[in-house]
Design a protein around this nucleic acid. Sequence first.
DNA 1: GTCTATAGGTGGATAGAC
DNA 2: GTCTATCCACCTATAGAC
Lengths: 203, 203
Amino acid sequence: MLRMSRVPSIAPQTGTAAQILDVAERLVQTRGYNGFSYADIASELGVTKATLHYHFRTKAELGGRLMVRYTESFGSALASIGAAESSALEKLQSYVQLYGEVIRDERMCLCGMLAAEYATLPPSIQVEIRRFFDVNEQWLTTVAEQGREANTLRFDGAPAEMARLLVSTLEGAMLIARSYDDPARFDASARRLLDEMTPRADA
Amino acid sequence: MLRMSRVPSIAPQTGTAAQILDVAERLVQTRGYNGFSYADIASELGVTKATLHYHFRTKAELGGRLMVRYTESFGSALASIGAAESSALEKLQSYVQLYGEVIRDERMCLCGMLAAEYATLPPSIQVEIRRFFDVNEQWLTTVAEQGREANTLRFDGAPAEMARLLVSTLEGAMLIARSYDDPARFDASARRLLDEMTPRADA
DNA sequence: GTCTATAGGTGGATAGAC
DNA sequence: GTCTATCCACCTATAGAC
């Protein structure tokens, strides 16, 4: 389809398609998949709906590509945190901060939002939702294992279970914090959970 | 159609209005507020959309009354649990079970679902969402205080913060468990969190 | 690649007969 | 209380000109 064939590979993501994804992403994160329309994106970008359909034939395709981009971007951030020379606890704190930036932008996690609307979404998007959570849990499981091994993290049970607890708590805390327009609610719950995992001096 | 007009006042909630609320509740919990229409309810009940508008003038009014009924019903359940002669830990287990029944019915918490769509909802519904969370947090705060006092619960920090952490975790765990159609995911996260709050024999 | 124009469907909501 | 009939705004999507 020769999309953006002239854009030098050095300067990416400034084309129309990327702008559409940017606006769509914010709309899904704030209003949900069933809460925005092509007309919303078009008016914001100053183009027509037909233009959007040229770049993304259907809304389902737009949603799917949105999720793929989001998971890729998130995965890169996780890889970066994972590669750093920091303790497992510090890595978890960085992880929490990723979510914190989203909630401070008055958004919900893209994937948490779509998880709520799961039953109404096309299967191609449903698959991507689970993939996002899988990526998160795998990364967290590894960090949890390393942390307990090195005594920088303290918790009972399987690392994979702790990973799922972390994701659940952060997603839920975002959901509620947004209803109160109060990011501090997210911070408090995240901090309390991490505190439970911090090795105690008296132990 | 003379629907149940003869039912004695002893047998409540069998009228058309209650049936509409029942169907609407399930639809919101599975598909979200923006994921269902009057046509969905009407076809399921075998009536026309006009009938729905007779009982609930607007969708916003239907949504508001749905939330009020839900919070009332939930509040009754909490009062019942709170009045029982059981330990604070057992009360928390009963609380978790309330959510567990919802997820086992393949539903999301009505309020968690609406919290996701918060930005698209009429203010009259937004108010009710926060009220639901407030009711939950107040009840949990009381239970947490009593439990720590009686040494049947163990946790650091303010009881109100622990209450918020509990709600966040349960809501998030429901959100994710539903995407995997796996209630066990909810159970595992809930159990792990309660385990952290269980007094240890070696302490 | 973006436009105008429009198709075909569904959304919430109302008027008026019964 | 429930129906038929209808309104109009909005939805996703397409055809074809430029």
